[in-house]
Design a protein around this nucleic acid. Structure first.
Length: 558
DNA sequence: CTGGGGATGGGGCCC
DNA sequence: GGGGCCCCATCCCCA
């Protein structure tokens, strides 16, 4: 009574759904590429994924272990059981795949890779094939064993170059690398047999592995699991355990780390490197070019406004953000360039479905069209995606070629990096004027005075922070769009908007927000509370900012 | 069509 | 680093 093709059909359907982003409930971030997938599928494929998807919708993978090209192959494998051929030299590709598969505890794939490598007549040396593919070319890096106990300690603090302490060079032996496979040999035979890993993980102290830095923003249901066991700093690593960011906040942490890591890798040509000129060119209001995209929707939770160009939240598989698309062109050694032009089945199929436009429509399931952000690999010719395959994430505009996207991105960075110093200076002057009496009053309680604008602060740290607002260069760039910030916190908050992280949910309507304050503000919609009253007309408002705009109406000449 | 209000997103900045 | 609040801008709805 077996239906012979049931499993195959099921996988096919799932893969098609993945291609369309339909019912995808998890995003995997690999470097700056975003992949959508289904938690169930990932969990069924790997114990590692299983532990991660349990807690979060966003997974940040260690970019030393896997790069977007490799992960794309891996995801294809998970959904199809097939390894799509590449132009990458076989050993190199399989080494990288093996490393990633071991890291991700994809034992079946790891076994397959080992077989392939044997066929190439070279034993896996323990060195990362990923080097050949990775954009960073970290030839000194060694594979961290996938074994929880081995990979856990001090793993991959790339921002501080602290790998040295993790695994002594040359110590990532084959045995270590393959240990998880051998420990769970049963898993080789089935993607779904990973439950045997549980004891192994726990037995190796992998509470820690699952120990996610579930920071304060965690919803209660997320906080129960193991986070307390985790040393606080562990979540800062791009390690498997931190990758599991059990909530958006922790993901953000790791993402921030990721970003700062990329910042540290400033010499790497892949990074969007805003130039000094960009920093110092003051021009008012140039950032407005992006304002139109401010109305993002919580992916999957709201219908599209239908205005196009605002689908930042829709993340199809293999998304690469605009600026990187640019930089990849300039980096012959980058993974995107070195990526082989393989035919991805999902794209072939998806392309047919989403060929009608380049990012401004919804697909038939009502979800966002997955052609919005096409990560196009070098040499990989388009299938049927429509004309504008290259889409800039910050503004959502699509372009038919990488060159045009590159040109567009250039204008972005220029626009975005204009520093509104004149603005802020004027504002500060205005504030100063209005604050003069207070300042006099605070002269003693605020002994730390800014030499530039005369503002004063209680402590030197705050003064330092303030002084940064006068700098022409801003030290914290967004790695996705290149926008620069004076405060790290502002940058990480900004990153949330790129990544669609909305940790704060309304209990009443489920709407989610990027900031606590927004939620508080929003709750007044439900409570009907209108604490802000216009002294001129008695009008009441739920939000102070709306009162302010209302007051402008009173005071404006018209 | 227009203006006002409600609601929301994002950045700056201070604590 | 995060919270909180300010601001500007925008979208949507409605009169």
């Amino acid at each position: 009574m077996d239906q012979p093709h049931h499993a195959k059909q099921l996988l096919l359907q799932l893969n098609q759904q993945r291609a369309k982003g339909f019912l995808c409930d998890v995003i995997i971030v690999v470097e700056n590429a975003l992949f959508r997938a289904h938690k169930n599928i990932l969990a069924a494929s790997s114990m590692y994924f299983k532990s991660l998807v349990l807690h979060d919708n966003l997974i940040n993978l260690d970019t030393d272990m896997v790069n977007p090209t490799i992960f794309r192959q891996i995801l294809d494998f998970i959904y199809t059981g097939k390894l799509l051929s590449t132009e990458q030299p076989g050993e190199q590709n399989f080494n990288a795949l093996l490393t990633a598969a071991s890291y991700l505890q994809l034992h079946e794939l790891a076994t397959l890779c080992r077989k392939k490598l044997k066929r190439y007549g070279k034993a896996f040396s323990g060195r990362l094939g990923i080097h050949g593919l990775g954009r960073h070319g970290r030839s000194h890096r060694l594979a961290a064993p996938p074994v929880p106990s081995a990979r856990y300690p001090g793993y991959s603090e790339r921002t501080k170059g602290s790998h040295a302490k993790e695994l002594p060079k040359g110590k990532a032996s084959d045995e270590e690398v393959f240990q998880s496979s051998s420990n769970q040999e049963n898993c080789h035979t089935s993607l779904h047999s990973s439950s045997s890993n549980t004891e192994n993980i726990n037995g190796n102290g992998c509470d820690q592995e699952l120990g996610l830095d579930l920071s304060k923003k965690s919803p209660p249901l997320f906080t129960a699991h193991a986070q307390d066991d985790l040393p606080p700093n562990e979540s800062q690593h791009g390690s498997p355990q931190s990758a599991s960011a059990a909530n958006s906040a922790s993901f953000e942490d790791s993402m921030t780390n990721h970003v700062s890591g990329l910042m540290d890798g400033a010499a790497e040509p892949m990074e969007l490197e805003p130039t000094e000129e960009n920093h110092v060119a003051p021009e008012n209001g140039q950032h407005k070019a992006h304002r139109h995209s401010s109305r993002k929707r919580d992916w999957g939770s709201k219908k599209d406004s239908g205005q196009g160009g605002e689908e930042h939240d829709s993340l199809p598989n293999g998304v690469i953000v605009g600026p990187l698309a640019k930089t990849s062109e300039h980096d012959p050694g980058g993974p995107y360039n070195s990526a082989p032009p393989y035919q991805c089945k999902e794209e072939l199929e998806n392309g047919k479905d989403n060929s009608e436009d380049s990012g401004q429509s919804e697909n038939e399931e009502g979800g966002p069209a997955s052609s919005n952000y096409i990560y196009r690999q070098e040499g990989y010719e388009s299938v049927a995606f429509g004309d504008n395959l290259y889409v800039c994430i910050p503004c959502g505009r699509g372009f038919p070629s990488s060159e045009e996207l590159n040109a567009h991105v250039e204008t972005h960075t220029e626009e975005e990096l204009y520093i509104k110093d004149e603005d802020s200076y004027c504002k500060e002057e205005a504030e100063d004027l209005s604050a003069t009496p207070n300042q006099a009053f605070n002269a003693e309680s605020r002994p730390f005075k800014c030499a530039i604008c005369e503002k004063s602060y209680k402590d030197p740290a705050t003064l330092r922070q303030h002084e940064k607002t006068h700098w022409l260069t801003r030290p914290f760039p967004c790695n996705i769009c290149g926008k620069m910030f004076t405060q790290r916190g502002t940058m990480t908050r900004h990153m949330r908007s790129h990544l669609g992280l909305k940790p704060f949910a309304c209990d009443e309507c489920g709407m989610r927000f990027t900031r606590q304050y927004r939620l508080t503000e929003h709750m007044r919609v439900h409570s009907g509370e209108k604490p802000y009253e216009c002294q001129l007309c008695g009008g009441k408002f739920t939000q102070q900012r709306n009162l302010i705009s209302h007051l402008r109406m009173h005071t404006s000449p018209t």
